[in-house]
Design a binder for these strands. Structure first.
Lengths: 184, 184
DNA sequence: TAGATTGTTAATCGATTAACAATC
DNA sequence: TAGATTGTTAATCGATTAACAATC
């Protein structure tokens, strides 16, 4: 049982995570040794150590490209703040949308992307454009100095190799679900 | 080189996929033996065999819960059709939205979910509600007979164990990108 | 001190790859 | 037949787990 309010054994952690306790200890040992023999791990300290190891101690400003339904949904998405991601700007090509507000953010012109990225030291961009515009959006992000791109459009992007790109492919997710429908 | 228009060696396939050729042959052997020694694999036949193995020969009807920005974006999302997923219905609790059109689909009442699921033999649901409504949406989907759920809300759902749930967690995706920012 | 739990080493397990006989 | 490439077995590699001395 927990010795202190936030003490926790590898056994308990493993139970919650659904993995082996030895696995937990081995993985945590990569952070250095932050457990106490006979007692367990201090959860609060662990939190900080893990965030530090993952480079997530400080906040990361993010820009969204595309203020359509998807971009708007993302701007309102509640899941980012807890993890230190802050939507700092949302841009669009459509001049009619510029100046409109989305969740407290003013939609800005795609043309201002370089200035915005520089002024706010943005390293991460999210592409929420139609597929046809995604590659061009990626090019502009890279040009502006963004180093990491989350692509929500169903397209494969070509970028310089030192830019990290991740694609969220909802078809693949559905595919995995469909597979399990047959083999339960 | 390709013997026929659609012949392809494991070496070529491995090159495109960025994996080992032996891996390709081993994996493909699980489908049964569909290559020809000395020649390679017939791409068109392979396509069919893989889709068959994954249970994706026939189309899968899908229902979206939530006709907000996210649900609307999904209904317009172009990436599903190629993979045999068809958005058959979109429902919402908001009575004001019911009857409005989204990409050729009429928004229906959440109350009609059981009838819709039954009539169209829907097995897959996508949750595009605000996080606070996600659990209730999941409950209704399961109640209506849906067996697979793709959860786009930043919440962990509790469901009966024979229901498959996948969560698309954009924070995790951003987290991985942020990690690579530090360790290139 | 006795009990508990870590950190780490050694054993196990599974997945990847190399190699090659089968065969087109 | 000679060359090419599969399908599969055996070898390698890495990841997971069990076990236990260290130590709180």
């Amino acid at each position: 049982m927990a010795e202190t309010a936030s003490g926790c054994s590898s056994e308990e952690l493993a139970g919650v995570a659904g993995v082996n306790a030895a696995q937990v200890r081995k993985d945590l040992s990569y952070l250095g040794s932050h457990g106490t023999r006979g007692v367990g791990y201090d959860i609060d300290e662990l939190r900080v150590q893990i965030r530090k190891a993952l480079g997530m101690l400080n906040d990361h400003p993010v820009v969204i490209i595309g203020a359509g339904n998807l971009g708007t949904a993302l701007a309102n998405y509640g899941g980012f703040e807890n993890w230190g991601f802050e939507i700092e700007a949302i841009v669009d090509v459509d001049e009619d949308k510029i100046g409109m507000r989305v969740d407290g953010l003013v939609i800005e012109s795609l043309h201002r992307l370089p200035q915005i990225v520089k002024a706010k030291s943005i390293k991460i961009g999210i592409i929420a454009t139609p597929p046809a515009a995604a590659q061009s959006a990626a090019d502009r992000l890279v040009e502006a100095g963004v180093k990491s791109i989350l692509n929500l459009a169903p397209t494969t992007l070509k970028t310089h190799e030192d830019v990290s790109v991740r694609r969220v492919d909802l078809s693949t997710e559905l595919g995995i679900l469909a597979y399990h429908l047959n083999r339960p």
